[in-house]
């Protein structure tokens, strides 16, 4: 069996006295689109930030393509595309300048960066906006710039935190096609959201987290059946309620 693309083993993270992640263990297979579900404050963003190398775990381990995020964060980051929940960008830059940094800092040549920028901009319909200041662009357009930055270096693993926020209906449809295409090409996608219906349609498997603990893992159907609900949404609500009880 192939080595997991992403592997969490007893992952724990404390913020002072508060435990945000409590021994999360799961494995995501290569080429899998994996949904990470849970209500606000469940620990989703903390998990993703640990994977992206912007936060250290308090305990346990997280590995991306077999590399531990604490032992060799630079190697992990080199193979990762990331979209943060905030979608914040340097507002005074243009998308082209932002993408030039993203590509060059990952070792792409100027020519390759420029070519990939044009291709992705066309795909996300950003080509008319590449040389405008990000401050002057809409939230959805900034989010498209983040998507382009995440995909620019063709990473084998994507870690996405609420990546559809601000996108219009057409862009969401395009992203869905893109994710399916990437998965077919062997790219692993770790997709965090609280939009259950979208995750249900996009993801091969899902995990439900609540109050820092993993409550269920499996295909959307397995999770629904396992919790005694008819739908994945019902399952998430039941699991959350059970955790509170």
């Amino acid at each position: 069996m192939a080595e997991p693309a992403i592997e969490l083993e007893g992952l724990t993270r404390d913020y002072g006295e508060r435990r945000a992640l409590d021994g999360v263990t799961l494995a995501v297979r290569p080429g899998e689109v994996f949904g990470y579900l849970g209500p606000n404050g469940a620990g989703k963003t903390t998990t993703l930030r640990i994977l992206a190398g912007t936060l250290r775990p308090s305990g346990g381990a997280a590995r991306v393509l077999g590399v531990d995020v604490v032992d060799d964060p630079v190697a992990v980051k080199a193979g990762l595309g990331y979209i943060p929940e905030s979608g914040a960008v340097f507002e005074k830059l243009t998308p082209r300048e932002f993408l030039a940094f993203s590509g060059r800092v990952r070792g792409l040549s100027r020519e390759a960066t420029a070519a990939r920028t044009e291709a992705l901009a066309e795909r996300f319909e950003l080509d008319g906006e590449l040389d405008r200041r990000l401050a002057d662009l809409s939230k959805g357009t900034k989010q498209k710039a983040c998507w382009c930055a995440a995909l620019l270096h063709e990473p084998p693993v994507l870690v996405l935190d609420e990546p559809l926020s601000g996108l219009d209906v057409e862009s969401v449809a395009r992203v869905k096609e893109l994710l399916a295409e990437l998965a077919r090409g062997g790219v692993t996608v770790f997709y965090s959201s609280h939009l259950v219906d979208l995750v249900e349609r996009l993801c091969h498997r899902v995990a439900v987290i609540h109050r820092g603990r993993l409550r269920a893992v499996g295909t959307p159907e397995q999770v629904a059946i396992g919790s005694g609900a008819d739908t994945l949404e019902g399952a998430v609500r039941r699991l959350a309620a059970a955790a509170v009880a």
Partner: peptide, 17 residues
């Protein structure tokens, strides 16, 4: 410093020692 300090994630996730 930056007025867009929240955007520094782009630097934090870049593979730079």
């Amino acid at each position: 410093n930056s007025a867009d300090a929240e955007a520094a994630w782009a630097i934090s996730v870049a593979p730079i020692e």
